[in-house]
Design a protein around this nucleic acid. Structure first.
Lengths: 122, 122
DNA sequence: ACCTTCTGCTAGGTATGCCAAGCACAGCCC
DNA sequence: GGGCTGTGCTTGGCATACCTAGCAGAAGGT
């Protein structure tokens, strides 16, 4: 494949957007908190641009998560090289978790699947 | 504390240069390995520019260190921290999942915890 | 002497990160 | 109906990441 980087950009953006909505923030609210323009944040969330580490850091701070987590989330920190296709007991565990709402379960599962896809899903 | 970001840029560059010299590489050698132009690498090492995460990642790979380490050493990742170790069957399943990298496991777990936190007391 | 081959750095252009201003739609109140 | 106020997205421009081409000096070979 020509570019799996855009894939990671998509994951990063989706993660940010998910975290923002989880925090019940509007795009503009987060933008102001992170000291980033709202149009640019919009583009970042849609994976159209690659934010600088300074911006990622700022957004992470506004979301009360670590920049490490956001970047690691999108597979941008380490070059992943593990691939043992296994049936997912992880998804089962998520579904069975009483501490999560159904919405959150779906979200977690989709993130989980995005990770496996980003790993070069086989 | 006018601009401590440029300070971190300097640290990042110095770290890269030190690692390069430690690996007995010339600037051009590392540049080719990391697939960036040698003039730009020179400027990065002197802290004149902020490289994108893609470039940092590429350089880190060429130096056989993790991008996390490069950015972390420059203080570009951490700003807040500390999370209480909690265990659950969902977390156990994630940790045991061979389809995920360690970083992704951490990310998923932290998302999971964020969800639980967002749920307040469940 | 000259020529080659290293080292790192400078100069100028192209691509892209990032922002201010504004658009389009939805919901609510008068 | 018209006029708010909220949502996210588009447009055009300035700033900067990143490139190619080339410079200046040191070390070695002929």
């Amino acid at each position: 494949m020509s570019d799996d980087w855009s894939n990671r950009l998509g994951v990063l953006g989706a993660t940010i957007r998910r975290q923002r909505q989880l925090a019940q923030m509007s795009l503009r609210q987060l933008a102001e908190l992170a000291q980033v323009s709202n149009p640019y944040l919009s583009q970042i969330e849609r994976g159209l641009h690659e934010p600088s580490v300074r911006v990622v850091r700022s957004i992470a701070k506004a979301l009360n998560v670590s920049a490490e987590e956001l970047l690691g989330d999108a597979g941008m920190l380490d070059d992943d090289a593990a691939s043992e296709p296994v049936s997912s007991s992880t998804e089962d565990a998520i579904q069975a978790d009483a501490a999560l709402t159904d919405e959150q379960k779906d979200s977690l599962v989709s993130v989980y699947r995005a990770y496996r896809a980003a790993n070069g899903a086989v």
